[in-house]
Structure formats: C-alpha cells, structure tokens
C-alpha cells in the first residue's frame, strides 16, 4: 500500500523548506522528498549548497553561508514536524487524485506515496555549454561550482562563461584565487545587475572578452585552453586558460512534470492568478521551477510560503 500524505513536497531549497515549515506548523505533517546528493543543483538544499556567502537574505546582518542557511531552514522544518527523506522522485502521476509519486523504480505498479496535494519545488539547474570536450573535462578544469573548485586555481588564468549575475559573482569570487579571470560573453553588454557590473568593472583581475562564444575546451588530462569564436567575424582563436567556469544560466528541473501539467515554452511551470496554483487542481509550484525572472533565495522562500497556504486552503475547501 502506498503511504498516504496530505501534503507532499518535492525539493528542499528555500521554496520547498519554507513550504515545509508553514505546512508543518499548520499540522499538515508534510513529507519532503529532498533529493539526493549531486553537484548540479537538484540536491538536498538546492542551489544555495553551491554558494558561499549570501549577503542579501533578510535577517542576517553580516551575511550567512549558503549551506549554513539551508541547514538552519532544514532544522526549522524538522522542529515543526516535517519529515524529510533523502531520495529522488522518479515518476509522478497527476492524472487523478490522490496524486501518485514514485521513489525508486518508476516502473513499479504502485506509487510509493499518495498525496492529496503536491507542492513542486524542484528548482533549476546550471546549463552547460554543450561543446564537445566539456563533459570529459568536467572536474579536470571545467566546473559549474566556483565555490567548490576556485581553490584549485591559485595564481592561474581562468575563464568564466556567461554574462548574468551568477557569472559575475563567480568571476568575482574566483579573483580571490586566480591571477586573472576572463569573462567570455556572447554579446557586448551584460544582463547582470548594475551593482554587480560596477564591482566587476572595478576589479583589476577581471577582463571581458565581448562578442565571443566558447566552442570547445582543450586539454588532454586537464584543461589547457578554450577555443572561442568571434560572433561578429566568425573567426576562431584559442585562449590559454587552465580553468573554465560555466555560468550561462539555468533550466528548470521540470522533466518529471512534462505532459502532466502546463509548462511555459521555456520549460518552467506555469502558475495562475499570482498564486502558486498550477494547471492541475491540487498541485502547487514554488521557487525557481516556476520563476525564471527573480530567482532569489527570498522570493523562492516567499513563494514556498504561498504554496503552503494555497495547499492548506485547498485542503480546507475539500474537507480534508
């Protein structure tokens, strides 16, 4: 028999854990399927597990480390009785109620968990460049986590791919170690916020390579350079770097939901009427899986709170 829950939450970043705190305080005994360890942002704790200092989360005058913030949120959810399980959902069935969620074998006849309401907080993951040798050299100079790997590039010249806030944050962080950081961006202006741009332009260790895309990563057993292409002239050249940090954006972790509820063209979950409601009655979405615009820890947490309240109202209306 599947185990039955009033509220099932998938994901354990700020959105999932805030939804857990609220629904646990409302005595709904939520179960959180928190994900499994990985280094690509769909892990327990979410993307903040790959960051260092969070300076803009309200309540922490001197900032707080990303993993520490997620640790205390997790403890707070547990304090109110939320149950967290370190596992991954392999399949969902949203075609009838209660909704079915499979953990482990997706081919099993019966769902592992049945839930009256589902809160989707699966977040987003880093996009990769998709060039030929990127995958082979991942961990050997190619990285998606500056905070994990920056340490290994002391006094070296490294490249960062991207032009948004995360790219500049990574570049700035990497200047603590590297002798020079070249930000490779495909356009001639950044989409990063003004404050980040100002900081980056002022940093003497950061250089910009405008209007270039990275078409390959070079190196036998570790990165020795990258091949870049001028987007205007089409000319290719090589840049001798020992590291490449990829921060070109994110894609939502919405694979489980395809064909089950309405997604935007870019794969993000569509929510309705400024609430967390999705196209399926009883299913709510919060955090980065439904937000490609704000993408902040605080907006994520805020939307997690909305989802918990929406789920609570739903259960009241349906006499649960």
């Amino acid at each position: 028999m599947p185990e039955r829950r009033k509220v099932l939450i998938i994901g354990s970043g700020p959105a999932g854990l805030t939804a857990a705190i609220y629904s646990a305080r409302a005595q709904l005994e939520p179960l959180v399927i928190e994900g499994e360890p990985s280094s690509n942002s769909d892990q327990p704790g979410g993307q903040l597990m790959l960051t260092t200092e969070v300076e803009n989360y309200p309540g922490f005058v001197d900032g707080i480390m990303g993993p520490e913030l997620m640790g205390v949120m997790r403890d707070q959810a547990i304090r109110f009785g939320a149950e967290l399980r370190t596992a991954k959902v392999s399949r969902l069935d949203l075609s009838s109620t209660p909704f079915g969620a499979w953990v482990g074998d997706p081919e099993a006849d019966e769902a592992t968990i049945e839930a009256d309401t589902l809160i989707v907080a699966t977040g987003a993951r880093s996009l990769m460049l998709g060039c030929p040798n990127e995958d082979r050299l991942l961990g050997y100079g190619v990285s998606t986590c500056a905070t994990c790997d920056g340490f290994f590039f002391r006094e070296q010249h490294i490249a960062v791919a991207g032009g948004g806030d995360s790219a500049l944050e990574e570049a700035m962080f990497l200047t603590r170690f590297a002798s020079k950081v070249t930000v490779v961006h495909r356009r001639d202006e950044l989409r990063a916020s003004k404050i980040m741009q100002d900081r980056a332009f002022k940093n003497p260790k950061i250089e910009f390579l405008w209007n270039h895309t990275i078409i390959d990563v070079l190196g036998d057993t570790k990165v020795s350079g990258i091949t870049v292409q001028d987007t205007l002239s089409g000319e290719t050249s090589e840049l001798g770097v020992t590291g490449l940090f990829v921060a070109i954006g994110h894609e939502p972790n919405s694979g489980l939901l395809k064909g089950q509820l309405e997604l935007e063209d870019n794969g993000y979950v569509r929510t309705f009427d400024r609430s967390s409601r999705t196209s399926v009655d009883g299913v709510f979405a919060c955090g980065d899986v439904q937000d490609h615009f704000y993408r902040q820890a605080i907006t994520s947490a805020g939307s997690g709170c909305m989802a918990a309240i929406d789920a609570e109202h739903w259960l009241e209306e349906h006499g649960e």
């Binding site: 690509n40 994990c148 790997d149 290994f152 590291g243």
Partner: peptide
C-alpha cells in the same frame, strides 16, 4: 593526485588509485 574539484573520491587498492569519482553522488 591532481585533484581539481571537490568532493573527489579516489579508491585505492594496494596503494594504487583505481577509480575516481568527481562531484556529489547518491549512495
């Protein structure tokens, strides 16, 4: 051992590296 990313796990047998796992992975 040219570790350039953490976590890295290396399995040693008789003192010799056998396999290297990079990044966090499920059990």
């Amino acid at each position: 051992f040219d570790v350039m990313s953490i976590p890295t796990l290396i399995l040693f047998k008789d003192g010799e590296p056998q396999v290297r796992l990079i990044g966090a992975k499920p059990k």
